[in-house]
Write a protein that binds this DNA or RNA. Structure first.
Lengths: 132, 132
DNA sequence: CAGAATCCGAAGAGATACTG
DNA sequence: CAGTATCTCTTCGGATTCTG
């Protein structure tokens, strides 16, 4: 049991827990963090509150719809807070919550891994594709 | 410039780099790691080499097709190695590569974050859904 | 300016059946 | 036992249009 505590979090805990073990939780988090835009948005908000159009310019490539949609999800999960000012024209500012900021720490570990090893991955892909 | 080096990796580097900045790399890694099964497979392989059917039993919920498909991608990216023994019946063993094992370290940071905060996320979701 | 709503194509993912 | 192929369903994500 003490042999591999590291991977234990991801493993099935037995036939009786089929459907909702510890892996559901991490998958839940990853499906939020791992989608196409969430991480970019939270990353951009690390610099401080930003309004809708600024975010859209900042992220470069995101569509209007996806920015709205992803911000909704992030707000729902408590990673981003939304403040709307009842003016004309309307102004809305988004900000990373405390939770959103703590999330960024472990994510940075992954980011630096990606920076370190994505060359290896690309090389491995090419080598793989050359076979056959 | 030195104000927020943390988020800089994820940010757009300017209008001229539209399409392929540093965020492409992390997104590439995340789309591999963040899919439904890759992480579970790599996690299960932390315990040592396993053959196809063992993996399928170990992961519980994965379909035959998805296990094959995900293993292919992991092998292509150099995270998992495949060894086939030309016997009857055939035997194939999968093993995490060195790269696959280094990946698991930063991922564990995310896993523990998920363990720590997924209650907050669930609570935030309920609170959000109660409004309206 | 911010966002909701709709339509549509592409990719993800399961079920099943077939081969060596 | 391991892997491929096909079929189908759902989800993701972009484009567009419309409102306060």
């Amino acid at each position: 049991m003490a042999a591999s505590p590291a991977s234990a979090v991801l493993e099935d805990k037995g036939p009786c827990s089929a459907g909702h073990d510890g892996s559901d939780m991490i998958r839940d988090v990853l499906s939020r963090v791992g989608d196409k835009w969430s991480l970019l948005i939270v990353g951009s908000l690390q610099d401080g509150p930003q309004r809708f159009t600024v975010l859209q310019r900042n992220i470069a490539g995101i569509s209007h719809r996806m920015l709205t949609h992803t911000l909704r999800n992030l707000e729902r999960d408590g990673l981003v807070s939304r403040t709307s000012y009842p003016e004309i024209p309307p102004r809305v500012e988004y900000e990373a919550t405390e939770l959103g900021r703590t999330l960024f720490e472990p994510v940075l570990g992954l980011v630096s891994w990606a920076a370190d090893h994505h060359d290896d991955i690309l090389a491995s892909r090419e080598a793989y594709d050359d076979r056959d």
